[in-house]
Amino acid sequence: MSKRAKIILIVIAILFVAALIWFGKKNKKSIVEYETEKPFKTTIVKKTVATGKVTPLEEIEIKPQITGIIDKIMLLEGSKVKKGDLIATVRVVPNEQSLISARGRVDNIKIRLNNAKVSYLRNKTLFEKGVIARAAYEAVELTYRQAQQDLKNAQNDYLIIKKGSAGSGGAANTNIIAQISGTILEIPVKEGDQVIQSNNFNAGTTIASIADMSKMIFEGKVDESEVGKLVKGSDIEVSIGAIEGKKFPAKLNFVAPKGTEENGAVQFKIKADVSLDDKFFIRAGYSANADIVLEKKDSVLSIKEALLKFDKKTEEPYVEVKQADGKFKKVTLKLGTSDGINVEILEGVVADDEIKIWNKVSKDEKKKDN
């Protein structure tokens, strides 16, 4: 063999070895090392949040007993009042036609009364002389007494139209007083505004609204998917948007038997008595959220939800558990309660299992997932 042939053989051998090395590196799979985590026992609390507001338990509207004009307002919104305190006064502005008509009835009855009086005195003299019988005298006397009473009634009607009341009842009708002790939330009228009395055909003009601010309730709504898990008397926590970092304990006392549809979802109203803290002043209408415990499980075997994968075909949850040879095995799980971070494990893994943390994924695994 010539020297040139030997050189060619050596070059071919070197190229062959280089090719083997190149193909070996190309086909070699990258090794990915995964961290693992063991299941643990913890308490899982499943909650729902109801949005709403805090309102007074007792709130009433004060309405006038007569129609008139607000003459004077004694107090301001936010003032604390006791039952019977004067809030405002109403000045009666009578209807001219009704006033003239009432005055005319008074004058007519006075004429009739004068005539009845003359007849009564004449017949009384005749009766005392024995000229007429007792029955005739008593009939004339009855007519006279009735005319006296008719005049009194007509005069009272006239005074009511003119002043809003007859006699001592005037102050009761024209004075607007607090019906309960509490805080004035709102006075929607001003001095000079006309107000209408409350009657069977009209709700009347609200002069003031009063509420007892020492008794507050939370009013909110929950979705129909969660309302079935609520239990009256349950303890909840109320967070008020205007008061940061403070939660007020409350007790659920009402769940509406009928829901209302809002934006395609059925919502149910709930109410809860709120325990107040003297350090904080709660205003009526504050927006608030209520944390309601739907389910609670103590010391149950759990894993983090981030460790879960779901089969694309069956949609069953699974994890990969490390085996003795260092490889991972797919294990299907049966899950229980979840709080969004941790989830209860009913079947599939035990406390000593090492579960893959999905922190590193090779290109082949990415292709497999896709």
Rank of each mutant, 00 (worst) to 15 (best):
Lys162Phe: 03
Glu186Ile: 06
Lys258Ala: 15
Glu59His: 02
Ala116Trp: 01
Ile236Val: 13
Asn153Trp: 02
Lys82Leu: 06
Val255Asn: 08
Phe40Trp: 03
Glu224Met: 07
Pro39Thr: 06
Val90Cys: 10
Lys6Phe: 12
Phe16Pro: 00
Thr42Lys: 11
Gly340Arg: 09
Phe16Cys: 12
Glu141Leu: 13
Ala203Ser: 10
Val17Ser: 06
Ile87Glu: 06
Ala250Lys: 07
Gly326Asp: 05
Ala136Lys: 10
Ile240Leu: 15
Lys41Gly: 00
Val227Asp: 09
Phe310Tyr: 15
Asn359Leu: 02
Ser198Gln: 14
Ala102Arg: 04
Asn114Lys: 12
Ala178Met: 05
Val350Cys: 00
Glu295Trp: 01
Ile100Glu: 13
Val11Phe: 12
Gly167Phe: 03
Glu219His: 02
Gly245Ser: 07
Gly348Arg: 08
Ser362Pro: 05
Lys367Trp: 04
Asn108Tyr: 12
Ala172His: 07
Ile184Asp: 02
Ile196Pro: 01
Val222Phe: 05
Ala5Trp: 08
Trp22Lys: 06
Ser181Trp: 08
Asn359Thr: 15
Ser98Thr: 07
Gly220Lys: 08
Asn200Gly: 15
Asn108Lys: 12
Val321Thr: 04
Ile357Val: 15
Ala208Pro: 09
Gly182Pro: 09
Ile282Pro: 02
Ala50Ile: 03
Ser168Trp: 02
Ala171Ser: 13
Lys304Cys: 00
Lys28Ser: 13
Ala324Arg: 03
Thr143Asn: 13
Ala13Gly: 11
Ser168Glu: 13
Ile210Glu: 01
Leu113Phe: 11
Glu354Leu: 07
Lys368Pro: 00
Arg103Ser: 15
Lys26His: 11
Lys124Gln: 14
Lys297Asp: 02
Asn359Lys: 14
Asp339His: 01
Phe23Trp: 13
Ile207Arg: 04
Lys327Leu: 12
Ile8Pro: 02
Asp278Asn: 11
Pro188Cys: 08
Asp235Ile: 11
Ile303Leu: 04
Ser225Gly: 00
Asp85Met: 11
Thr48Arg: 06
Ile243Ala: 04
Asp235Met: 07
Glu37Arg: 14
Asn289Asp: 15
Lys53Asn: 13
Gly192Thr: 10
Asn175Cys: 04
Lys296Cys: 01
Asn95Pro: 06
Lys63Glu: 03
Asp71Trp: 03
Ile111Tyr: 12
